[in-house]
């Protein structure tokens, strides 16, 4: 049952991701991106990571992509229609894709066979706490992963200050 749900959702994720890249209309691309992001939220639910799923929909699908759409609309609408398709970058793109495909293939069929042995091993740790994994996630972020967490927030702050500095002539 679960495996069929996975295939259905994965099909949505992949097909909308492909459509996002191939669509010639920028706004359509963004719509496909939203569909893809929401479907990824579905994958998280299948992994019993409800909190991550909710945050995926709240932050990525609901917040960040809206800003993408906003920016696309700010630039001239008529110009967004005719986007040159491959920008003559097919060679580097093909090489990079090949490398990525090799890496994924190596991971799936290569020596990482343990990956499929017990997929619920890490999930069961998170599930141990009654009432979902939100609390576990919070505890881990503020104990074991405190440094990466803080570094990430500093990084965001720097990005924000940079954006303000670039967009304002006089701060």
């Amino acid at each position: 049952m679960e495996i069929y749900a996975f295939y259905a959702i994965a099909a949505v994720v992949l097909s909308s991701a492909v459509l996002m890249v191939t669509s010639r209309n920028l706004v359509h691309s963004i719509v496909y991106m939203v569909i893809s992001f929401v479907a990824v939220g579905g994958l998280f639910i299948l992994l019993e990571a409800e909190f991550v799923a909710a945050v995926q929909i709240l932050v990525y699908a609901g917040g960040i992509v809206v800003l993408f759409l906003f920016v696309v609309m700010l630039v001239n609408v008529t110009e967004t229609y005719q986007v040159e398709f491959l920008h003559r970058q097919w060679l580097p793109a093909a090489v990079l894709s090949l490398i990525l495909a090799t890496q994924i293939g190596f991971l799936v069929w290569g020596n990482a066979g343990d990956l499929s042995a017990d997929p619920s091993a890490s999930a069961s740790v998170l599930r141990a706490v009654d009432g979902g994994n939100t609390e576990t996630l919070g505890m881990m972020l503020y104990t074991d992963y405190l440094l990466p967490f803080e570094v990430a927030s500093v990084l965001l702050l720097v990005a924000m200050i940079g954006a303000i500095y670039l967009s304002k002539k006089r701060v």
């Binding site: 939203v34 409800e50 929909i57 709240l58 699908a61 809206v66 979902g132």
Partner: peptide, 16 residues
């Protein structure tokens, strides 16, 4: 068990 986050997330999709 993440009810209110999900409500906020889904109602955020109204913006689209």
């Amino acid at each position: 068990n993440v009810g209110i986050l999900l409500i906020l997330g889904i109602s955020g999709l109204t913006t689209y």
